[in-house]
């Protein structure tokens, strides 16, 4: 841990990433989710699954970009992974730094608290009384994290536990490390 991750993240974000207009990004993601809801006739469980698998396919590619731009090596432990995800990964791709919280005693589980979620700006969930209970609007992030970590031999369970859009006080993603994979998994569809 030579250089603080926060500085690395800011440096990579400032100098080595291409930026796009955030409203374009937010509205694009919004129309993807809204279209999925229409396509699946508001079956939000299917929409969640679909978002996750889209995210997975993003994640397994994005990790290469991430490693190429940061030149990070292997993490010593899951705590370091958490720090890097929050301070460098999220900073680099979404320009936000979620707080790492609730690390379990065995060091295998933690929560990411997103103070501001660029995906969910302007969004109000449909008022059909179902979306608020079933839809995880930003579920693509779950897939991205899962896919990216799998490519660096970490089998991790990722899921949303809270979302401001549902009326919760914060937006939280839970990550739990299952095992460290031995062999390289070939990239591809699951």
């Amino acid at each position: 841990m030579s250089k603080p991750y926060k500085l690395i993240g800011e440096d990579v974000y400032k100098n080595r990433t291409e930026k796009i207009n955030s409203e374009l990004f937010t509205l694009t993601y919004g129309s993807v989710v809204a279209q999925l809801c229409r396509d699946y006739n508001n079956d939000y469980k299917k929409v969640n699954e679909q978002l996750e698998s889209m995210g997975y396919n993003i994640g397994i590619r994005l990790i290469e970009e991430f490693l190429a731009k940061t030149n990070f090596g292997r993490c010593i432990n899951f705590k370091e992974t958490a720090e890097i995800i929050s301070k460098v990964g999220f900073k680099m791709f979404l320009n936000t730094t979620p707080t790492v919280d609730n690390f379990s005693a065995d060091g295998k589980q933690f929560n990411l608290i997103l103070e501001d979620n660029p995906l969910a700006e302007f969004v109000e969930l449909p008022d059909d009384n179902k979306a608020v209970k079933e839809l995880w609007y930003s579920n693509v992030l779950v897939g991205v994290l899962k896919g990216a970590l799998q490519m660096v031999q970490l089998d991790v369970d990722v899921s949303f536990v809270k979302d401001i859009l549902r009326g919760d006080p914060s937006t939280e993603i839970k990550l739990r490390l299952n095992k460290i994979l031995k062999d390289e998994i070939p990239a591809g569809e699951d």
Partner: peptide, 19 residues
């Protein structure tokens, strides 16, 4: 305009949002 930007709202639809 903010309401209109929400992806689940379509133009000319009644605004039912409590917010």
């Amino acid at each position: 305009v903010k309401t209109l930007l929400s992806p689940f709202y379509t133009i000319n639809e009644a605004i039912r949002s409590k917010a």
